[in-house]
């Protein structure tokens, strides 16, 4: 027997979900904020950034991949879980080269957005300062892997929405990185400025050329309020 509604709680608030919805989808529909980074509507949830972790029936899991289940007890906005989230975001910052003052995306960057939201002033881990590639060969698009957080949005968008498979991951563990066709530069790929993948990057890895400062710093997405794309109810 399948029910047409699922009822569970997030931080004690009763939430209703449709069968098949994830905890994050149900929370979004109920205007309950769960910090999120790699999730992008229209793509298959990947759970790679782990920022949206919650405790469901006492067990940690990513809310973007976790199906809502009848009677489930979800902890979301607790100091314990926010501390895990800060650790995760800290690691994303120190593993790459995120020099915010030199980045065109600063202020519109979703990594900054969650860091601001979580109240991070300085990471607790030592910076790795890895050596990463940049590619400015394409006439309309920059690629700067210094800022890549391996969220897989571009891999999925290029493959599933653009039908092109311009980007792919290579390597494993600490050697995992975003790559294009071996031996090719970005200009040699099918990538076009009108592709959806260009807008899919949460950080400053895939950037449109010549528009970086069209909106001045101070008036950008995350400059005045946290996650304005998703209103929050008290």
């Amino acid at each position: 027997m399948s029910k047409d509604k699922i009822t569970f709680t997030i931080d004690g608030c009763e939430v209703t979900a449709q069968p098949g919805q994830t905890v994050m989808q149900a929370a979004d529909a109920a205007n309950i904020r769960i910090p999120q980074l790699c999730y992008l509507e229209g793509l298959t949830p990947h759970g790679s950034c782990r920022v949206c972790i919650v405790k469901a029936n006492g067990r940690l899991d990513t809310s973007c991949t976790l199906p809502a289940v009848e009677g489930m007890v979800v902890e979301n906005n607790t100091e314990e879980i926010n501390e895990y989230r800060r650790d995760l975001v800290d690691m994303l910052f120190v593993e790459g080269n995120h020099i915010c003052p030199s980045c065109e995306k600063s202020g519109d960057c979703e990594l900054q957005g969650v860091a601001y939201e979580l109240g991070i002033t300085a990471p607790k881990y030592p910076y790795q300062f890895p050596r990463r590639e940049t590619d400015a060969s394409h006439p309309d698009i920059f690629l700067d892997l210094n800022r890549c957080i391996l969220c897989a949005r571009c891999v999925q968008t290029s493959r599933d929405l653009d039908g092109k498979t311009v980007f792919e991951f290579v390597g494993r563990g600490p050697d995992k990185k975003l790559a294009i066709r071996p031996g090719a530069r970005l200009a040699d790929t099918e990538l076009d400025i009108t592709d959806q993948v260009v807008g899919s990057c949460p950080v400053g890895t895939i950037l449109k050329k010549r528009v970086g400062f069209a909106v001045p710093v101070g008036e950008r997405t995350y400059d005045k309020e946290p996650h304005p794309e998703q209103p929050v109810s008290e």
């Binding site: 080269n97 995120h98 020099i99 003052p101 030199s102 300085a122 300062f129 050596r131």
Partner: peptide, 19 residues
Amino acid sequence: ISVGACAITGGIPAMRNNI
């Protein structure tokens, strides 16, 4: 108190760190 990006992250001067 560390004041500013360079004190906290190394900042622009730290862009030499991967070279």
